[in-house]
Nucleic acid binder design. Structure first.
Lengths: 343, 343
DNA sequence: CTGAAAGCGCTTACAG
DNA sequence: CTGAAAGCGCTTACAG
C-alpha cells in the first residue's frame, strides 16, 4: 500500500499551515476561497482522505451507527426474515445519506449484546431490529436506557417499553386485513403465530384480528379468537398448519403473523390436499418480495420499509444531535392478491 | 451519557501508571498477574472500554472489514437476493470471530465506490459481494488492485480477473444439475438467465449446462444450448418465461441461473396453465431458504454460504496480516426436490 | 516488571 | 484570514 498522505503533506505542498489545510477541507468560512481551492486540488491530486480514527478521536464521535439484528434463537444463518433485509437496504441508504457509516452485527444477544458499540466509540448510536423474544431483552433495553446510550428500535409502541420506537401500526394492519377477509364471507378464523408479550408486534396483529372478528359478530364479547402458536419461520408455519389440519378444527380463513409463516402454511395446506383459497383463505403479514410469487399469490399487509428505515435513522441521528425525538407509528397497508379468495 | 472512564482513571485507582494499565488490558506478559488482575477488576467496575479510535489511530489499523454489496442496478431496495443475505449472516459471524467489526454498504457503485473505506482507515479491507454487472466494475477492481487495497470478492474464478476470489464451482454445479435433469429423461433444454461476461458466475453455470447437454448427445459439438436472457429477479424470470411460452418453443426442461429467476418462472408457467414438472421441469440455483416452499418445491444447486463467508473473511484477514492467500473454489451440491420431475 | 515520554493524525481554541 | 500549540486516548519503544 502506498504511504498515505497526511494533512501535513498537503500543507507542505500548498505552502500553508496544517491547520489551514484542515479548515479548508472542512469548508470552514475562515479560509479564503483561493486558498481552499488550492488545497482541495492538492488533496485530490495526492488522493488524500481524512483519517477517520484521528478525526473521530479528536471530535469524540464516530459518525457511525450500529445495527443489531436479532431473530428467534432457533433460526439459523439462512433464516433471517427477508422483511428485515428490505429494512437493511433502506437503513444503509438512509445512514449513508445522513453522513454516517453503518456497523452491522447479527449476533444473537450475548451478555454484552449492545456489544459495547457506544462505549468503545465505535458507534454513536444503535439501531435494534428483529422479531426476537421481547421479554428476553427488555432488561437489556432498560440498561441501555439507563446508560443513556442512544438507540432506536423497530417494534411495537408501548408506553411501558423503554426507548424510542419506530413501528408500523400492527393493530390497524391486523384489523384491516381481517375485515377484508370477513368481507369475502369467511367465518371460521384462526390466527397462526405468536400472540403474547414475547413478540408485541405479533400480539398487536392478533389484537387487531380479534377485534375485527368481534366487530363483525364472529366472536363473542368475552371470547378470544382461535390462535395457534408458531415462530416466524416457514418450517414452523408448515408444522403448525399440518397440526391444525390434523386436529380436524373447522377453519376457512387463516391469518398468519408473518409472510414466512404463511408460506409454510400454504405449502402444508397444499400437501394436505386443501385448496387455497377455495377451502381455506390465507393471508400473511410483511409483504416480503416473494409474496407475489407464492402459489397462490399471497394477500398480506405491507409495512413501508423504506419509510421505516429513514425514520429509524432520522430518530437516531436526532437523538445523537441532542434533539427531542419521539416514537412514531407508520400506517400499514393491506395488499390484496389471491390467497385470500378475492377475485 | 456518563463520562467515559479512560485508562488514566484506571491507573489512578489502581495506583499504577497508565502504560501498565494499557499493557494489563492487552494481556501483555510484561505485567505481573497480580497487577493485571487488579487492573482488570477495576476496569470492569468502571465499565471501562478501550477507545477504538485512539487505539486504532495509534496502531494504524481499524480492525474493521467493509462489505460492499451490489446488485443489478435495476433492482430496488427490496430485491436483494436472499442468497446474499445468507452470506451476510455467515460473514458477520466470521468477521466477529476474527475479532473484526463489519461496516456495510449496499450502495450501488458510484465513482468512489470503494468508498474510501481503506483510504480513510475506516476499514482494513473490503469484501465485495453481488451478482452485478462484472464488466462495469472490472476497471474499478483493477484500480483497487493497483492501490494495493486489501479485498476479496465472491464470484467466478478467472485468471484474468483481478484479486483474490472465493466462489463456488458454478461450472460443476450447472453441469451436475443438468445431468440430473437429463437422467430424468428431459430432452428440450432452455437456460434462463444471463450467460455472458457481464455475469461470469451465470456464464459458468451456463457452460456447465451446455457441456452436460453435449455429453449426453443432446447438443451438437458446435451448437450452443438455447438460452433466454434474464436478470436475477423474480419479475425478470416471470416475464421471460411468459415470452418463452408464447414463442411456442419446444421445451421440457428449464435451468435457471438463480432461484429468484426460477420462482418467477414457476409462477409464469402456472399462470400459463403449464404443469411443473409434468409439462416442463424447472431447476434453480442458490438454494435460497424459500426453495423448499415453492410450488412444487424447487430443485436447485446449493452453495455453501457458511463456508463461503468463512473463507471470504479468512482470505481477507490473511491478506491484511500479510500472509499469502489464494482464490478458492467451493463444491456445489445438487439438491433434488420436485420441480425437476424426480419422484 | 514498571514508568515517563513520544506520537498516531487530526480539530479547534487562542493569538495575531 | 492564518499559524503555533494543545490535546483527543491510546500503544509502545526506551530507560530503568
Amino acid at each position: 500500500m502506498k504511504e498515505k498522505a497526511t494533512s501535513f503533506d498537503i500543507a507542505h505542498k500548498a505552502g500553508v499551515s496544517q491547520s489551514t489545510v484542515s479548515r479548508a477541507l472542512r469548508n470552514s468560512p475562515l479560509v479564503s476561497k483561493e486558498t481552499r481551492d488550492k488545497i482541495k486540488a492538492i488533496a485530490r491530486e495526492l488522493n488524500y482522505k481524512v483519517d477517520k480514527n484521528a478525526s473521530n478521536l479528536r471530535q469524540q464521535q464516530s459518525k457511525t451507527l450500529a445495527l443489531l439484528l436479532f431473530e428467534d434463537p432457533t433460526s439459523d444463518d439462512s433464516m433471517i426474515n427477508p422483511f428485515f433485509l428490505s429494512m437493511l437496504g433502506s437503513i444503509t441508504r438512509a445512514t449513508a445519506n445522513a453522513g454516517f457509516d453503518l456497523l452491522v452485527s447479527f449476533q444473537q444477544f450475548s451478555d454484552d449484546w449492545h456489544a459495547d458499540f457506544e462505549d468503545t466509540h465505535k458507534a454513536d448510536g444503535i439501531i435494534l431490529l428483529g422479531y426476537g423474544d421481547f421479554l428476553e431483552y427488555q432488561d437489556k433495553l432498560q440498561a441501555l436506557e439507563e446508560q443513556n446510550t442512544h438507540f432506536v428500535r423497530w417494534g411495537a409502541i408501548n408506553e411501558s417499553h423503554p426507548g424510542v420506537v419506530i413501528g408500523s401500526n400492527n393493530y390497524q394492519g391486523g384489523k384491516n386485513i381481517t375485515r377484508h377477509l370477513i368481507s369475502l364471507g369467511h367465518k371460521e378464523f384462526v390466527f397462526i403465530g405468536g400472540a403474547d408479550n414475547n413478540c408485541p408486534e405479533f400480539l398487536e396483529r392478533f389484537n387487531g384480528f380479534n377485534d375485527a372478528l368481534k366487530e363483525a359478530g364472529l366472536l363473542g364479547e368475552n371470547q378470544r379468537a382461535k390462535h395457534w402458536d408458531a415462530i416466524s419461520t416457514e418450517h414452523s408455519g408448515y408444522n403448525v398448519a399440518k397440526a391444525l389440519v390434523e386436529s380436524g378444527a373447522k377453519v376457512d380463513a387463516i391469518l398468519c403473523a408473518s409472510d414466512l409463516i404463511a408460506i409454510g402454511v400454504l405449502t402444508a395446506l397444499k400437501d394436505s390436499g386443501i385448496s387455497v383459497p377455495g377451502d381455506i383463505a390465507v393471508a400473511g403479514y410483511d409483504n416480503i418480495p416473494l409474496a407475489p410469487f407464492t402459489n397462490p399469490p399471497l394477500s398480506t399487509v405491507k409495512q413501508n420499509t423504506k419509510l421505516a428505515g429513514e425514520l429509524l435513522v432520522d430518530a437516531l441521528v436526532g437523538q445523537i444531535e441532542g434533539q427531542p425525538v419521539e416514537s412514531h407509528l407508520i400506517d400499514a397497508e393491506v395488499v390484496i392478491r389471491h390467497s385470500c379468495g378475492a377475485k
